[in-house]
Amino acid sequence: MDLAWMGWTPFTATFFSVIACLLVVMMVWEKLSPGGAPRFGMLRFETTRGDRLFVTLLSSAFIHLGWLFFGGTDLWWALGLSVLYALAVFRWV
């Protein structure tokens, strides 16, 4: 099957592989510890670990867009900031 029309690049393939790996990790985590670990974090509403992943991914997208708008095109800093943000979300939200 010719997928040339999709215009794949190594970078976008890596991006989607990471997303797929994250989903697999979440599935394994859920299998090992069922229930989604719901809790009331600092945002004062209940979140499961799936919610926390969603918040992390959505916020990371905006961190990258914000970096492009204010900081420039070196996105490694935005990626580092997103990882720190993800750790904070999974710890406190």
Binding site: A4, W5, M6, G7, W8, T9, F11, T12, F15, F16
Partner: peptide
């Protein structure tokens, strides 16, 4: 959606050239 992500980081003039 994957295709849109791929296109967003490339330029194309058709004929599957990116």
């Amino acid at each position: 959606l994957m295709t849109v992500v791929n296109y967003s980081v490339q330029d194309s003039f058709g004929n599957n050239e990116f």
